[in-house]
Design a binder for these strands. Structure first.
Lengths: 138, 138
DNA sequence: CGCCTAATTGCAATAGCCTTGCAGGTGCAA
DNA sequence: TTGCACCTGCAAGGCTATTGCAATTAGGCG
C-alpha cells in the first residue's frame, strides 16, 4: 500500500488490515475499472480467505475517504478505480467495451458552454460511442 | 397508444395487448425517465393485474424495436424513456437527481474534438454535475 | 360472429448483486 | 503483552431482474 493511503487510513483511526492493503494494491496495480467481484477474485489469489462482503465494506470506506472513485460505466454494474489527482472523464466504447480517460480540456470547452447556457456545473462525463478501432471497422 | 407505435408493433406481427398499450402510454405521458418499478405502479393504477415481469418483457420488446431507449443515469438503476427522433444527451444533477436533456450542439463541438483527437465517435453523453438550482445553493 | 392457435401473460421460482447481523478474530495503543 | 474496539467471515436476507410453465387471449380465418 502506498504511503499516502496508509497514512490516510491510520491518521483517521482506521486499522491497516491485510484485506484493506490488498484491495488497495489491486486497485492501484490494475489502474483500470474493477468490479467488486473481479477485485475479490484477484485478491483471493493472494489471500484466499477474504470474503466479498469485506471487499464491499473496504470499497465503501475507500470511497468515503476519497481514495477510490465509484463509476457507472453504463452497464448497470458498479466499477471502482483509484481516485486520480487530475479529474478525468470516461470514454466507453459501446462495441468493445474499452474504457479510455479524457481530461476536461479535451472536451473543447463543453463544460464552460453548459455552465453558460444551462447554469450546469459539469463534474463528470460518461461518453458512450465507438472507439477508434471499432469505428473504422464498422 | 400512438398510431406510430401501434403500427410498428402490428406490422411486425406482435400483438397489441392492453398491457403493451398501457406501458407505452405511460412512457409517453411521463416524458421522463421511468424505472420498471415506477412504471409498473403507474400502469397498475389503471390495470391492477399487470405483473412486473410483463413490464420488463414489454420494455425489452420496445427497446429492441427502437421505440424506447434504456438509459443508465449513474445510480446503477435502469431507466426507460421514449426514443426521441432528435438524439439528446443527459445532464444529471448529483445533488437533486434532476435530469435534463441537451442536444449535441450545446456541447460546443466536443464531439468533433473527440473524433479528431481520439478517433472517438460520440453517440451518447451522460453528464454529471450540479444543476443551476443546486449550484447556486451550494 | 365464434373458433382456433400461437403469442402473451401472470405467477412463482430463481439468479445476481449487494447489504447486514452477529460471533469470533485481530490491529494497535498503552 | 494485554485489552478492547474495530474488523472480518459467514450466513441470512433484500432488492432487482429473469425464466419456466400453465393459463389466458389477440386476432386471423372460416
Amino acid at each position: 500500500m502506498t504511503h499516502h493511503a496508509t497514512r490516510t487510513l491510520q491518521e483517521l483511526g482506521y486499522r491497516l488490515t491485510p484485506q484493506r492493503t490488498l484491495v488497495w494494491d489491486q486497485l492501484r496495480e490494475d489502474g483500470g475499472h474493477l468490479t467488486a467481484e473481479v477485485l475479490c477474485r484477484r485478491v483471493q489469489s493472494q489471500f484466499p480467505h477474504i470474503n466479498i462482503s469485506t471487499i464491499y465494506r473496504t470499497l465503501e470506506l475507500l470511497v468515503n475517504l476519497g481514495l477510490v472513485k465509484e463509476t457507472h460505466l453504463g452497464s448497470g454494474g458498479r466499477h471502482f478505480e483509484v481516485e486520480e489527482e487530475v479529474p478525468h472523464h470516461h470514454l466507453v466504447c459501446e462495441k468493445c467495451g474499452r474504457v479510455e480517460h479524457v481530461h476536461g480540456e479535451d472536451l473543447n470547452g463543453a463544460d464552460a458552454a453548459l455552465l453558460k447556457t444551462r447554469g450546469f456545473e459539469l463534474h463528470d462525463a460518461l461518453l458512450f460511442g465507438s472507439c477508434s478501432a471499432c469505428a473504422t471497422t464498422a
